[in-house]
Computed example of a mutant assay.
Amino acid sequence: MASRPAPTARRIRLAAELRKLRERAGLNSTEAAQMLGTSSGQLSNVESARFGVSPERVRAMANVYSCTNQPYVDALVDMAGEKTRGWWWEAYREVLPSGLLTLAELEHHATAIRTAFTAHVPGMLQTAEHAREIFSKAIPAPTPPEVEHRVSHRVKRQDVVFRKNPNPYRTVIHEAALHMRVGGRRVARDQLRHLISMSLRDHITIRVLPFDIGAFPGSGQSINYLCGPVPELDTVQLDQFHGPLLVDAEAHLEKYRRLLDVVEASALSPEKSRDLIQVITQNL
């Protein structure tokens, strides 16, 4: 018997949200299943993402659970109705960690992306040469094919900012990351020039936190905030040594939204940030 394909990140999130709706309604799985005309086992399979769920069933569940947040319900219905296979990142399933595929999936579906980085240039804005140098220094040391798989995956992720009608992308980069000569002077200079070029795109906002800003909240952590169609479906991705960590609890989402607001307010304006990047480029 063929094994069941691993559920997508979006299906896992949909399942978790449906479970939250039931619990907020004060229903246990047996009570909810009876009201929905199904079995508790079937409901459990849906809430654990083992089985998919139709858009019609999602609307029925929202009705039984007395959810009146219509934009939220509509977003859940859309998640249930979208295709689950055939995305470009599936081609990497056998050669890259699943966390990288999940990140690509979440970025693709995000309505906007906000990031803050202290020690490196965000992957969405890296040149291929810069990314190749970063990946080649991983521990344990990757093979050349592994490096190239990661580079090509990163470049394909960048379609989010290059595709037709791209969604907003906002990032704050600490000045320290701009001084790092990743790959030597030429590669570092090309990377900075690429940042300047990308900062001129209407949908991209790049701000720099200068050295003289001193301490700031979240200084020890890179943050990737992926906006969903409604705030309840936002996701935060945090870099960990062992791979990406995803956070979506409402209290945590609010915390990271506030943190990014403070960091952005502390950074230079987009125009002054571009000027600073130009000065650093000229001094390389």
Rank of each mutant, 00 (worst) to 15 (best):
L43G: 09
G37R: 07
M180P: 07
E271L: 08
Y169T: 05
W87D: 10
S222P: 10
I113K: 01
A49C: 03
R257E: 11
L259D: 01
A32N: 00
L246C: 05
A251D: 14
L178T: 04
T235Q: 09
V182W: 05
L260Q: 01
L226N: 11
A188K: 09
V263A: 01
M124L: 15
Q221S: 10
N28R: 06
E133W: 13
R57K: 11
A49R: 01
E90A: 04
P97A: 15
E17M: 04
W87C: 08
R193P: 11
P145M: 10
G220E: 14
E105Y: 09
H179M: 11
A6C: 08
L27Y: 09
A33C: 13
G228A: 00
L276K: 05
N28C: 10
H194D: 00
H174K: 02
I223T: 03
D261P: 02
L233T: 07
M1E: 13
P145W: 05
H174M: 02
G26C: 08
Q237Y: 01
E94K: 13
R181E: 14
P144D: 03
R93Q: 14
H149N: 14
E148V: 06
G41K: 05
S39A: 02
P229M: 01
Q282M: 11
R258L: 11
H179Q: 11
H203S: 04
L101Q: 09
P140Y: 03
S269R: 04
L43F: 10
I139T: 15
R193W: 14
E129N: 12
R4W: 09
N224I: 00
Q278I: 12
S222D: 15
S197D: 14
L14V: 02
P142C: 05
V172L: 05
G220I: 14
P122D: 09
I223S: 01
Q42F: 13
H242V: 15
V172K: 00
G37K: 06
P166G: 03
R185S: 14
E175K: 10
R50A: 02
G214C: 04
S66N: 13
A251G: 11
A265G: 10
A15K: 10
R93T: 12
N165W: 02
